[in-house]
Design a binder for these strands. Structure first.
Lengths: 296, 296
DNA sequence: CGATGGATTGATCAAGCTCAAGGCACGTGG
DNA sequence: CCACGTGCCTTGAGCTTGATCAATCCATCG
């Protein structure tokens, strides 16, 4: 599966205005068959599939290039074969809101189906190898292979659930919890891709993380520093190591009054003085103090 | 084909205390045909549809009843024919997060497709008349009427876009802007349903609005009072009148540093003293002062 | 090497949360 | 019919989180 991306591609996307225009100029580029595409999406390939039947073209994008833009006519879905991206929504006043950080196996462009124009913008954060799935192909495949239609609904449903989780997280969690979860989520995704989920490099800026989490870049930076000093992670610029994933995952929202937490779950070791110091230095919020005190 | 859904439900709703009680007692209950269902969802009914071919059963729910719960096995989609509901996600610690307020024409349950278990909980806020769409029927219809499959993808895509908007709003807007938009959105939806979009009753508590918008109920209450005193709306308990929808819709986010706003767009009239008074009384946040001053 | 974009850190402050008290509407039972 | 309870809403006072503004640092790259 990994030999799929030996593609050397002239940069005909330099202008990038119309990604797909240039697509059919592709000659010696790579193609994937249906089975490979299904594996990428982690869905069952249909038993009826003929490996040579339908082929999907690969296209490479350089870091910084746009895969599609808001308002552009929709006709293609994209699957990430390698690389990292962000999708963003631009509000009425030009502010950029990061919606997701797609990586290997993720499907892009679904939001374009509704109005037949993309509702978001996808931008490569690193060099990327993307598989083109013309929407027409997508739908007709569903009709040919019955099991596939199921899987397609399932993938869209998964996206909806993902966004629901995002909404929950945005409106319920504290800054610390948001950042902590963001890191563990990233870790899990790296794991699934076969990389280390403990030690990885961020592909996005603090700014982008902040936008994604509904925080400012300063808060993201401060929180990373705090988690670092607490010994839950180690940060050095973009290089992240998750030292205490359990503590990270259970780091909770600043509790809404009533349901306060069993402190033992919060941090793995005694950290009273450390925590107090950080609270006093204004790196950690007040309530950590009580918890740390209650700890030992 | 014609009897795809002659369902007298087995014990899907095993828990007799809820919802379902009423469900199977309905014998002479209402049924809708495909054409009617399509109209409700505002999608094109397929030309090939035979009105008597496929029928969809209606089920009534009383205010407070659950339509489905988290984790329950998924096999049915619901379309709201009348009434008002909320969907919620319950986090690991029992906190309720409101995800949407479905009403006439909305489709519920899509989030169950992915794992074959509902990922959220739907609760009637008023008496509701719901149309059952067994998932099996749903998918087989897509195969029979080709145009329908399109429409089904489109509906799911619309939901994804809606949630993206929600995410943007949650992380970018101020409390005031959130509440203002919430009201205008509600108004627009009432309009589409043929009711007045200017004057309506809230079906949900301040608590639920707050959860939906990522605010506390107190903030929601205060903000409503503020918009009321500013003359943009009138509030009396659950009764809302939108007096200046334009001002409401353009009420902006607390600007993120750089891109500050053309003040003229904010409020429709001169309101300097009013605003100052409210700021001093701590009802409106500080920055309104500058805007009001800049106004005249 | 300087320039540039990103990251860190500090100091200050206000938006929105928490806690608390009281008010209003509606239903139920005496 | 009123008294009372309950659930929801409003308003106030004070405090914390996280935003803002600003200075500095660091890394990369032409």
């Amino acid at each position: 599966m990994s030999n799929l991306l030996t593609l050397t591609q002239p940069n005909r996307f330099a202008d990038a205005t119309h990604a797909s225009d240039s697509a059919w100029r592709q000659q010696g580029s790579l193609w994937s068959n249906l089975r490979q595409v299904c594996e990428l999406l982690t869905i069952q390939p249909p038993a009826t599939a003929d490996d040579e039947d339908t082929l999907f073209q690969h296209v490479r994008f350089k870091a910084g290039q746009r895969i599609h833009r808001i308002g552009q006519v929709f006709d293609t879905l994209y699957i990430v074969n390698s690389g990292f991206l962000k999708t963003v929504h631009i509000d009425e006043y030009g502010n950029e809101q990061v919606l997701s950080f797609p990586m290997k196996g993720d499907l892009l462009g679904i939001d374009g189906i509704h109005k037949q124009h993309y509702a978001s913008e996808a931008i490569a954060l690193s060099d990327c190898d993307m598989i083109l799935v013309p929407y027409k192909t997508f739908t007709s495949l569903g009709r040919i292979h019955v099991e596939l239609e199921q899987a397609m609904f399932s993938v869209m449903s998964r996206e909806i659930v993902r966004e629901q989780m995002m909404i929950s997280m945005l409106s319920a969690l504290s800054a610390e919890a948001k950042v902590a979860r963001f890191l563990t989520n990233l870790g899990e995704r790296f794991n699934q891709m076969g990389y280390s989920g403990r030690s990885f490099n961020l592909r996005m800026t603090r700014q982008e993380i902040g936008s994604y989490l509904g925080l400012t870049l300063e808060t993201v930076s401060r929180t990373l520093s705090a988690l670092n000093e607490l010994g839950m992670i180690s940060v050095e610029q973009r290089e992240i190591k998750l030292i205490d994933p359990v503590a990270l995952k259970t780091l909770r929202r600043l509790p809404p009054a009533k349901a306060r937490i069993k402190v033992s779950e919060i941090v793995s070791e005694k950290v009273t003085e450390k925590v107090n110091a950080l609270v006093n230095k204004n790196i950690l919020p007040q309530w950590n103090k009580d918890m740390a005190v209650a700890l030992n």
